[in-house]
Design a protein around this nucleic acid. Structure first.
Lengths: 132, 132
DNA sequence: ATAAAACCTATTGACGTAATAGGTAAATAG
DNA sequence: CTATTTACCTATTACGTCAATAGGTTTTAT
């Protein structure tokens, strides 16, 4: 199961892509539109900034905005940033130590296949595909 | 991330498929071969029995055995039994109450697409495919 | 100066996971 | 008929993560 953080982050990104009338969009507006607590969105926005996905501006008329056009974001990179990994099993995580059973593991290959399928799906999908 | 319960269950099923010399295979043997605590395997075996996947026999020469041939089990049904659901988001769970945002949700369709991909993959794959 | 916004640190309740523990019941071999 | 081997049963627990809340400080435009 994907966490709310990942799912909400995606909705924040979509919301930012759909509301470009003002340079910066305040969290208050997103919170209202998306019906998500503003406080929780602060945590999510912070991580999106840290990950280079969005840019924030303090003060009056501040808020957040995308740093690229929606077609230049893949859904996969947004989710992966929030979830840490989208690997189906720990053995396949980026810096996982080689499992001692890997050589004779009957399931490893299947997990790899699935992981590839998953990555193809989410990295092939663009933020712009979700904004119609 | 799939839980150890789901992953271990799969390995138990594979182990049972690969060891048919005796009618029933005791958990002790599986625990040794798979390097999983026998106690934990008891919990897993219990759920597999309850789900109609395997059959147990008490007493000397007891143990567990498959109730079908390996090609008659899909990987999906085994995982789903142990995990409860393999839906990527709560909205898509079997008895989920309709989300109030469903009509205007920009992401729901993507989750549905992914869920279908996932189910096609895991229900298309058979236990026998993992036993080579 | 004031208001609106991001930005920052900390904390918390609830829940699920991954086991462990200690027994009882059933079946077989000797 | 006794010992042994196995499944079967009920509880409990440590731990981590998730999802969120709380209460402040700093920045910036008007």
């Amino acid at each position: 199961m994907f966490t709310t953080k990942g799912r909400y982050a995606l909705r924040v990104m979509i919301d930012l892509a759909q509301h470009t009338e003002n340079e910066y969009i305040p969290l208050k507006d997103i919170a209202t539109r998306q019906d998500i607590s503003k406080k929780y969105l602060e945590i999510i926005a912070k991580e999106l900034v840290k990950g280079g996905m969005i840019e924030g501006a303090s003060g009056k008329h501040g808020g957040y905005k995308l740093v690229r056009t929606p077609d230049e974001y893949s859904v996969g990179e947004i989710i992966e940033l929030m979830e840490g990994t989208i690997a189906p099993v720990a053995c396949l995580e980026a810096n996982a130590k080689e499992c001692s059973r890997a050589g004779k593991c009957n399931t490893l290959n299947m997990w790899k296949e699935f992981y590839e399928l998953e990555r193809d799906f989410f990295f092939g999908k663009k933020l712009s595909d979700l904004c119609s």
